[in-house]
Computed example of a mutant assay.
Amino acid sequence: MTSNLTRRSALLGLTTAFAAPALLRAQDATPIELSAVRRNASSFVTQDWRDHFESLGKGVIVADTTSRALHYWSADGSDYRIYPTSVPMSEDLTKRGYTEVVRKKVGPTWTPTKSMRERDPTLPDHMEAGEGNPLGSHAIYLSWPAYLIHGTHDTRKIGRRSSSGCIGLYNEKIEELFALTPIGTQVRVI
């Protein structure tokens, strides 16, 4: 009688024998606490435009700095969208309240404010539109000076406290919002 034992079957048997105790221990292991895992994704909080505005007007935007989400409703209320955002780095840079969209620009240029340059003297005086520009591909200007809703080329910033006061979106999302949002859209930052 010949043995059907080959080198391959012997290795498979040994591997199984050594792996079995580890697999059994893994089944008994306590699951990882997901709340302890840190991510840069938002935990969106549902908003209703009626909690913030009397009417939709030309449309409304609610930028929620706590959940790091921007909510958009069209003028007739039929189109609702939610986007993950970056938010200001600190409370002293966060402006809250009511404003509106006053201007929009594809390929915005960037000029750091005096306070930005005080915090970081290495910032340039001015930056043309392009890959290194922190305003990304599109910018929506608000009635508050130096506060914008804009894109970013640095996708690591989304879901984080990373801006000098503005609300940032992924470039493809700001492009979408830009197309939807007319001048005069009401905005509330909470």
Rank of each mutant, 00 (worst) to 15 (best):
M1W: 13
S3F: 12
S3L: 13
S3M: 13
N4D: 14
L5K: 15
T6M: 12
R8K: 13
A10F: 15
L12K: 14
L12H: 08
L12T: 14
G13Y: 05
G13H: 03
G13V: 05
L14I: 14
T15D: 03
A17S: 12
F18Y: 15
L23G: 14
L23R: 03
D28A: 15
T30G: 08
P31M: 07
P31Q: 11
E33Q: 12
V37H: 03
V37F: 13
V37R: 15
R39T: 15
N40D: 12
S43G: 09
F44A: 15
F44L: 02
T46I: 09
T46M: 08
T46D: 15
D51Q: 14
H52T: 02
F53R: 06
F53W: 10
E54H: 13
E54T: 11
S55V: 13
L56R: 15
L56A: 05
G57H: 00
G57T: 02
K58F: 01
G59D: 06
G59S: 04
G59T: 06
D64M: 08
T65R: 06
T66G: 07
S67Y: 05
R68G: 09
A69I: 06
W73M: 00
S74A: 04
A75C: 01
D76N: 12
G77T: 06
Y80F: 13
Y80R: 05
R81Q: 12
Y83K: 14
T85Y: 00
V87N: 10
V87E: 05
M89G: 11
S90F: 00
S90W: 04
D92L: 01
D92M: 06
L93T: 03
K95L: 13
K95F: 09
R96S: 14
G97S: 10
E100C: 00
V102E: 04
R103K: 14
R103S: 09
V106Q: 09
G107Y: 00
G107W: 00
G107L: 01
P108Q: 07
W110P: 05
W110T: 06
T113K: 08
K114E: 13
K114G: 06
M116H: 11
R117F: 03
E118F: 02
R119F: 02
P121T: 11
D125P: 00
H126L: 10
H126S: 13
M127A: 05
M127C: 03
E128W: 03
A129W: 10
A129Y: 04
E131N: 01
G132E: 12
N133M: 03
N133A: 03
P134Y: 05
S137R: 02
H138D: 03
A139S: 10
A139E: 02
A139T: 04
I140M: 11
L142C: 08
S143T: 14
P145M: 09
P145W: 14
P145S: 14
Y147I: 15
I149K: 12
G151K: 01
G151Y: 06
H153L: 07
R156D: 12
R156Q: 09
R156V: 02
K157M: 14
K157I: 10
R160Q: 15
S162E: 14
S163N: 08
S163L: 06
S164H: 10
S164L: 09
G168N: 10
L169V: 01
L169Y: 04
L169Q: 03
N171G: 03
E172T: 03
K173I: 00
I174M: 11
I174C: 12
F178H: 14
F178S: 10
A179R: 08
L180V: 00
T185C: 07
T185F: 04
T185H: 05
T185K: 11
Q186P: 04
